[in-house]
Write a protein that binds this DNA or RNA. Sequence first.
DNA 1: CTTGACCTTCCCATGATGGGAAGCCCCACA
DNA 2: TGTGGGGCTTCCCATCATGGGAAGGTCAAG
Lengths: 149, 149
Amino acid sequence: MNIGEASNASGVSAKMIRYYEEIGLIRPMGRTGNNYRVYGEEEVHILRFIKRARNLGFSLEEAETLLKLWQDKSRESAAVKEVATAHIADLERRIAEMQGMVKTLKHLAHCCGGDTRPNCPILDDLAGDGSAAGDKPVAPAKNRMKQNA
Amino acid sequence: MNIGEASNASGVSAKMIRYYEEIGLIRPMGRTGNNYRVYGEEEVHILRFIKRARNLGFSLEEAETLLKLWQDKSRESAAVKEVATAHIADLERRIAEMQGMVKTLKHLAHCCGGDTRPNCPILDDLAGDGSAAGDKPVAPAKNRMKQNA
DNA sequence: CTTGACCTTCCCATGATGGGAAGCCCCACA
DNA sequence: TGTGGGGCTTCCCATCATGGGAAGGTCAAG
């Protein structure tokens, strides 16, 4: 299987497959005489595993941890659960953070006429005239979301 | 006012102030004879404006838009409201996305013994054995969150 | 034999931020 | 007057995960 076929079969782009190899997330693949990488079912399975972990918001580092646990037949499920619950907590923290932003913005937007007049409480708030909603920096978040908007 | 004082007064790091200048978000500042940047109250006000917009999850690009609207005395508040509501929608989409992840992960964690045995439904799911919860890539999100975990 | 679709490596860009080096500059203190 | 420490300057690099694209090799079908 060439890298293109492995990409199709796993849903991971060829670029990313090479990158994962480069950073040591997957083992360097064997090559054919023409220097093409060769993949088998097992590699595709691993790539799909990684892709699913990414879809669930795990970072590549966490995916690597989970991958090692997956391949460790004697692992304890507690170790896996720990990674998962830590990730849940992280997600929930970020959700709460964004909900706080939404709440503030909705309030400001509600107070804003949204018409042809220049008067705008949203800008007033950003400028720091009043209650200063944008003053409290929300808890920062590690960025580990897929980005391809 | 030197850049350090402007930084203290605005809460924006000196590094970032120079960066904002570099990307054209703020005007290049005048210099003293020793080549130090000089800031006044207005610049500090602008920096605080940007910081608040960032705290509300706006990207620097959106902050620039809002900044221009802020400085445009004849703007229509509808234009501002539009930026804000688009941002709210974006935040809500990402919140829903992460809530989906949390839901899936909680279910998997709930089913996982979390003990010393190797059996683990979380890994089973990632490996694609069953219902394939991690299969559906959640809607991707532009990354515009503060990151400094 | 040509054409087009692969593959390879290498470099660059994203967005927002921090780290750090090398080299000025200035003020306070001995 | 010398010196030390802290500020300022620019410049380069790193992060994280991903894509774009160039330049060149390879292969299979026409």
